[in-house]
Nucleic acid binder design. Structure first.
Lengths: 130, 130
DNA sequence: ATAGGATATTCTAATATTCGAATACGGAAT
DNA sequence: ATTCCGTATTCGAATATTAGAATATCCTAT
């Protein structure tokens, strides 16, 4: 039961939790479908080639992490994205072609990175102390 | 050994793989640090409160999924983000405050979702066929 | 070659994820 | 009440992830 706004969690923990909930091909497919419009379980089950119980399990994971919510519609239960903007942004970000880092530029930063590391433990006291 | 451009993988599989690699608080912290500048393992180890072997393991995961790469710098090995833009975008997307879906609007789409589902299996033939 | 620091690997135990199978639940209509 | 349909839960086995401990490797300087 991981809700998505535990107040005492670090930002990294919370974000990791959301990412983990998203990090499955079937769940990505479900989110992709829900991005178009809300759907009941059977509709999702028919569109994707995944068993109904399995769909239900994945929906539970998405629900527990706050990504989807559901509402009754007669005898159906319709699922929808709670924050469609977030899901859309993540999926578009992933699909976008991102340029590789400029190796030369990166290499130029190595010394700085290294000095930062050395700064942290001081430059002196190579072995014996005092 | 999952490289990040297997040609016969679906987009969902590939994206899920990247998300899974990112979906850990320590790895998010590592990426956050590398976003500032490249760093060697020891620097990361000192900044985060995580054992060196564990840092190394997480770096291996990030490397295998194509998120980071490394280069020697003397006896150090400096890690850097291969596509900093991707990492930055994902992290900013996660941290942003996204509005909740408008429930009323969503509810209005339920019928459409349902009719789409019904369209798929036809309206006739309730039980016996032909 | 030896030593020492930086990084990687291996092993292991604990824990978590995944999925199929079977089943249970819940509402609507007969 | 029973049946049917849509959905959820439970169980179990296979597999994967995680982190610590111990150890190995690699580079550099002596």
């Amino acid at each position: 039961m991981a809700s998505y706004n535990k107040p005492d969690q670090t930002l990294f923990d919370m974000n990791a939790e959301i990412l983990r909930a998203m990090a499955h091909p079937v769940r990505l497919m479900i989110m992709d479908e829900l991005l178009r419009n809300p759907k009941c379980v059977t509709a999702i089950h028919e569109i994707l080639d995944v068993s109904q119980p399995n769909i239900s399990q994945h929906l539970t994971i998405l629900r527990n992490s706050g990504i989807v919510a559901s509402d009754r519609d007669g005898s159906y239960r319709c699922y929808y994205l709670r924050r469609p903007g977030l899901v859309k942004a993540v999926m578009e970000t992933l699909s976008k072609k991102w340029p590789e880092a400029d190796i030369e530029n990166v290499r130029g930063n190595f010394k700085r990175a290294l000095s930062i590391r050395l700064d942290k433990q001081g430059v002196v006291t190579p072995k014996g102390d005092s």
